[in-house]
């Protein structure tokens, strides 16, 4: 970023909404400089041009999570985005601003975040400490390495950008969403927490409903990596007592993948298919493959890894 103060005139097109009028686009012209954030741009539009423009913003420094919106289609925090950066990235001084996806718009860029909060509350987002610690009779200990691992997932500012862009949230009501999982895992893996079994019941089934599209990782303004928390949550499946069909299928599949790699160093699709879906499920899919003319590839035998001892040694951790 150069420190030379550049200036430009931009045209900001806002997708506005009101319950009476529905959606409409409105254009505003604005002069900005190198350091103008989008929250500043919106503030100036509201005070100098159009007081009816509604948006949320508070801290202007990426800690309150209020200003999540889509800028040129990208889910971003308005305060953390500089206008001229977007002008340069998209090579145009016309910029579109829309509210976040998925959440119901209330007015202009303000959306209803109730669904987001409900999902967060479901995972019990606080520490449930030991009784003795609460009474002051014992001490809580947290090792530095545990804290380092949990710290990343505790950075969430509840902005909602990840949930708004998650495909699984939109298509699967049973999925708690990336933010809730990051928060839930932060406590699931905290050694000071005492309701681990209850958290497993809340989090495990939902953790197997993520599609690993990395959208949450990509849009998070605090580098929380919710998808990483979901992957780590799945590891608790090994010790879970209650397993739903989604958990069982997921566990069978991941174990089949591991076993195939352990055995031959590669994923043998036929074996993984059978272990995951069983004989009937696999036969049904084979019919679909036959219809597409792809069955001949199901019988292709792949060469196993020669130095399989090395692969097994790596996986066994000897």
């Amino acid at each position: 970023m150069s420190l030379q103060n550049e200036e430009a005139e931009v045209i900001i097109k806002v997708k506005r909404f009101s319950p009476e009028k529905g959606n409409w686009w409105q254009e505003y012209k604005l002069k900005v400089d190198r350091f103008t954030q989008f929250t500043e741009a919106l503030r100036r539009i509201k005070t100098e041009q159009d007081p009816t423009l509604a948006y949320r913003a508070a801290c202007h420094m990426a800690v309150c999570g209020s200003c999540g919106m889509k800028i040129n289609g990208e889910p971003r925090l308005a305060c953390k985005t500089l206008v001229l950066d977007m002008v340069k990235k998209y090579e145009s001084n016309v910029i579109t601003i829309e509210p976040m996806d998925y959440f119901r718009p209330i007015k202009d860029l303000i959306v209803d975040l109730d669904d987001f909060y409900q999902k967060m509350y479901k995972v019990k987002p606080r520490l449930y400490p030991n009784e003795q610690v609460l009474k002051g009779e014992a001490e809580h200990r947290l090792k530095p390495e545990d804290q380092r691992m949990l710290w990343k997932f505790a950075q969430c500012i509840w902005c909602g950008l990840c949930v708004s862009s998650c495909p699984s949230v939109r298509n699967d009501p049973e999925f708690l969403g990336p933010a809730a999982h990051a928060k839930g895992f932060r406590f699931l893996a905290d050694p000071r927490d005492t309701i681990t079994e209850e958290r497993e019941k809340i989090l495990l089934d939902s953790a197997w409903r993520c599609t690993y599209c990395y959208m949450c990782y990509n849009v998070c303004p605090r580098d929380v990596e919710p998808v990483t928390a979901i992957k780590k949550t799945r590891a608790y499946t090994k010790i879970a007592k209650v397993k739903t069909p989604v958990i069982e299928t997921g566990e069978k599949h991941t174990e089949a993948v591991f076993n195939s790699i352990f055995e031959s160093g590669k994923i043998e699709e036929a074996k993984v298919y059978l272990s995951t879906y069983g004989l009937i499920g696999s036969l049904r899919d084979m019919i679909f493959l036959l219809q597409s003319g792809k069955l001949k590839y199901a019988l292709v035998k792949e060469k196993p890894v020669e130095n399989i001892t090395e692969v097994r040694r790596i996986l066994r951790g000897e």
Binding site: Y212, F258, V305, I314, G317
Partner: peptide
Amino acid sequence: WNCCGGGFLDEYDEIGHIAL
């Protein structure tokens, strides 16, 4: 060459995934 993990190995064995 060995399998990359298919997108599922790192949740089962993160270190093994990196090494492979």
